Amino acid sequence: MNDQLPQVEIYTDGSCLNNPGPGGYGVVLLAGDNRKELSGGFERTTNNRMEILAVIKGLEALKKPCRVNIYTDSQYVVNAISKGWAKKWQKNNWRRNGKEKAKNPDLWQILLQLCNQHQVNFIWVRGHSGNKENERCDRLAFHAAQGSDLEEDIGMDN
């Protein structure tokens, strides 16, 4: 562990109206006195894709290697990284087992690469439980999903 790296706190959330349906992500980055908020929406996606994409967008916003605490209410994301599921799926050519394909391999691939660039610690927070930054991410994601200029989620059906 490199204590010389800058410390960043990243809060993330994904939202999907219907599932699949219009969706969005919200991110809050905190580093010292600096704060940055990110959000974006897609016309047809899933909640899980938006949860993963929120983490990706947060990590992509970092300009250099950092020590990062990522707070998310997605146990899917926390477990896939912390328990090594995503690395195992990658090693097995994006299969969960002999027959079943892993979902969202395009996003997991990017997230695994980003996790290698930083010292990342994933922390699960209960959604809608009063955590100020998680609630802010939820609002950002929900409003992004309702936007009028939604992007196409090109990896949605892969």
Rank of each mutant, 00 (worst) to 15 (best):
N19H: 11
L17E: 15
Y25R: 11
D13F: 02
G21R: 13
I10Y: 01
N18M: 14
V28R: 03
Q7N: 11
L29A: 07
E9Q: 10
G32L: 11
G21E: 13
D13M: 01
N19D: 12
L17W: 15
V28N: 00
D3N: 13
G23H: 13
N18K: 15
N18C: 11
A31P: 08
P6L: 08
D3H: 13
N19W: 13
G23D: 09
D13H: 06
L5K: 04
G26L: 09
V8F: 07
V8L: 02
G32H: 03
G32K: 09
Q7H: 12
E9H: 06
I10D: 01
Y11F: 07
V8T: 07
D3F: 10
D13Y: 04
N18T: 14
G32D: 10
D13R: 01
G32N: 05
L29Q: 01
G23Y: 14
P6E: 08
V27A: 05
G14M: 03
L5A: 02
D13A: 06
T12V: 02
D3M: 10
S15I: 09
G14F: 11
N19M: 07
P6M: 03
P20L: 05
D33E: 11
G24I: 10
D13P: 07
G23S: 15
E9L: 03
G24M: 14
Q4G: 04
D3A: 05
G24C: 10
V8D: 04
Q7D: 05
L17P: 13
G26H: 07
L29N: 01
S15F: 08
G14K: 04
D33C: 12
N19G: 08
E9C: 01
D33N: 15
A31F: 00
G14C: 08
G23I: 12
L30I: 07
Q7T: 09
N18P: 10
V8H: 06
D3T: 06
Y25A: 02
G24S: 12
L5N: 04
C16E: 15
G24E: 09
Q4F: 12
A31K: 05
L29G: 02
G23P: 11
P6V: 01
D33T: 15
